[in-house]
Write a protein that binds this DNA or RNA. Sequence first.
DNA 1: CTGAATATCTATCATACGATATATATTGTC
DNA 2: GACAATATATATCGTATGATAGATATTCAG
Lengths: 256, 256
Amino acid sequence: MLPKSKEIGSHDRVAAGHDGRDTPPVRGQVRRMVVKGRPESGYKKGDETRQRLLEVALAAFGAAPFSAVTTRQITTAAGVSLPSLQYYFGDKQGLYRACAEAIVDRFRANASAAAGDARKALGGECSPEMARAHLKTVLGAIAGFLIGTKESARWAQFVARELREAGPAFEILYERLWRPGVEVTSRLIARVRGVPDNDPAARVEALLLIGSVLAFQSGRRITLRTMQWSAIGPEELELIRAALDAQIDAIGRNPG
Amino acid sequence: MLPKSKEIGSHDRVAAGHDGRDTPPVRGQVRRMVVKGRPESGYKKGDETRQRLLEVALAAFGAAPFSAVTTRQITTAAGVSLPSLQYYFGDKQGLYRACAEAIVDRFRANASAAAGDARKALGGECSPEMARAHLKTVLGAIAGFLIGTKESARWAQFVARELREAGPAFEILYERLWRPGVEVTSRLIARVRGVPDNDPAARVEALLLIGSVLAFQSGRRITLRTMQWSAIGPEELELIRAALDAQIDAIGRNPG
DNA sequence: CTGAATATCTATCATACGATATATATTGTC
DNA sequence: GACAATATATATCGTATGATAGATATTCAG
């Protein structure tokens, strides 16, 4: 039963607090943890519980930052007892990271279609106007997915916060989600403008566009209030898409 | 020495967290609190301490969410003892709200110049191209202030988070900062496009533009990493401004 | 210089938190 | 059906948190 040391004041603060404590948890063996593979384990019931916990955690961590969500909230809402969390995920951060992994998988499942097409087009030769069309498709898909569905709103909040505040799941999300997304977008923009693939200005434009979409999602509450909308339905989404398309149309064209 | 009442259930939870425990604090009278006026009170030393506390809190709450910042962190960093916080601000949320007020004042001091000009122009007749110029000035000023100065970065983070997550200071920031800003921006855009002042599409475009600027600020960390910049200096700011100007130039012009 | 108003401290409270030890129940394998 | 592996629950630990009580020091008007 390893001494476990646990570092003095472990008590992970999330952001500012993030402070010292960079040593990995090292926590005493976690029974399951299912490190990578999703299903695993011959036993059925356990996976159900794990899933329920994960689902509740996704909602909770989507709606509030790491430190504002308590393990008791999660386990209670999931209808399981407190130690189940440690049993399946080691500790609170383990659960948080598991949420990130789950989100990445679901996001990619939805985005891979449009992104794949665009990537293929970038592989062959591809006229500026074709690139522009792909750009609209890709960003439109992202926007529709991010803004349109209530479910993904939660995940988007999670991702946006984590990338902003460089929390415990930052690396996962950056490498598997953000980087590929910016990559495709900025290469498309570069193609539209006829500049090299890694042109800085194109990258900035990519950030600006993606940032706009995220702003609508992340700031959904304030968007609703500002626009005096009661929800972001198909009509509202259309307005947003139109604004986005206008921005994309402007790329690479001289003013006046 | 008025009991000061201090609003009953002021306890407003910040986000999801913090469980039941809803019994209002009703805490005994707060000695000072200096409800509105900044200086006040013949005694000098007190105001200094109050100011120091506020300054530290601005940095702390700028960098991390409400629940991730502890009162001990703040008071220690400010070099005062724990109860000083209650003495001057009633409780943690009182301090938080005081931060919001302080930020609003400082922001307005910086933005009022450009915004005032634009408002005056909107009052008289104002050609689309003049409106476009004002738009560039206003957004450029906001971007410069928000992204350019290290100090305001903190405040911007605070504001962005609060508006996103509808925390205890939401109303203050929405009414005194966000609303006027969107108002001016969207009216300018409407003027550029020659549509009525309250045109929804213009409002959406305003949200999109402001959202972009905020995204660069709020997501400063990830911007740096994505662009492989070590800081956002004058050169980098210029790239961002250029991207913004391009977007503004695109407003109201037909594609192709 | 005096006395009240103001400011600051030390010590402590009750509670909520994340985590664990440990006992019991459930599941699947042979 | 026996038995190991897996899963869940109860009870509790140590600690960090926000807040308060109450004593003491400082400030300033008269």
